[in-house]
Amino acid sequence: MTAQHLLDISELRVAFPGRGFRARPHEVLHGVSLSVGEGETVGLVGESGSGKTTIGRAVLGLAAPSGGTVHFQGKDITHATGKERRALARDLQVVFQDPYSSLNPSLTVGDILSEPLVVQGVTAREARAQVAGLLDQVGLPKDAAERLPREFSGGQRQRVAIARALAPAPRLIVCDEPVSALDLSTQARVLDLLVDIQRRTSVAYLFISHDLAVIRHVSHRVSVIRRGEIVETGSAGRVTSAPEHPYTRQLLLAAPVADPVAQRRRRVERQRLAAAGGAEVA
Rank of each mutant, 00 (worst) to 15 (best):
V70T: 08
G61F: 11
R200N: 13
T186V: 15
G20F: 06
D259T: 04
A23Y: 00
R128Y: 10
R199M: 09
H79N: 14
P256E: 11
L7F: 03
E40L: 01
E269W: 00
Q4L: 14
L252H: 04
S202E: 14
D143R: 01
V160S: 02
T69N: 01
I230T: 05
Y205K: 05
I215C: 01
R24A: 15
P99C: 06
Q250N: 05
I208C: 12
G278R: 07
A254M: 07
S202F: 00
A165N: 07
L252C: 08
A145K: 06
A188N: 01
R90F: 05
Q73W: 00
V32F: 09
G61V: 02
A167L: 03
V281D: 09
A132Y: 01
D76R: 04
A276F: 05
I208G: 11
P17G: 13
R264N: 11
E229C: 08
E115A: 13
S209T: 14
D196C: 04
H210R: 06
Y205N: 12
G74L: 11
G133H: 11
G277F: 15
R22M: 11
I230S: 04
L62M: 15
G133T: 03
G133R: 10
C175D: 02
P65G: 13
S114A: 15
I215H: 01
G18V: 01
G46R: 06
R216W: 09
A89T: 09
D192G: 08
I197C: 09
A124V: 10
P116C: 04
I197F: 13
D8A: 15
L252M: 14
G278K: 08
V261E: 15
H245R: 00
G74A: 12
E232C: 05
L148W: 12
G39P: 02
E232D: 09
S33K: 07
R85V: 08
T248W: 11
F72N: 10
G82C: 06
I225T: 06
S10I: 09
I112R: 07
V214H: 03
R24M: 09
M1G: 15
E232P: 02
V174T: 07
D196V: 03
A144I: 10
G82K: 10
G49Q: 03
A275H: 09
G228S: 10
A64D: 13
A64S: 13
A258I: 15
S35G: 10
L107N: 05
T69I: 10
G37M: 05
P141Y: 04
H217Y: 14
A188L: 11
R249D: 12
T81I: 12
A23E: 10
L172V: 11
S235K: 06
R189M: 15
L6H: 00
Y247F: 13
H245F: 08
Q187W: 08
G154D: 14
R270M: 13
P149N: 10
S33G: 09
D192K: 02
R85W: 15
L6F: 06
Q120K: 14
K52G: 03
L88T: 08
R267Q: 15
R272H: 13
T201Q: 12
R128M: 11
Q137G: 00
G56L: 04
F96C: 08
A236P: 07
Y100W: 14
L194S: 07
T123W: 13
G43P: 02
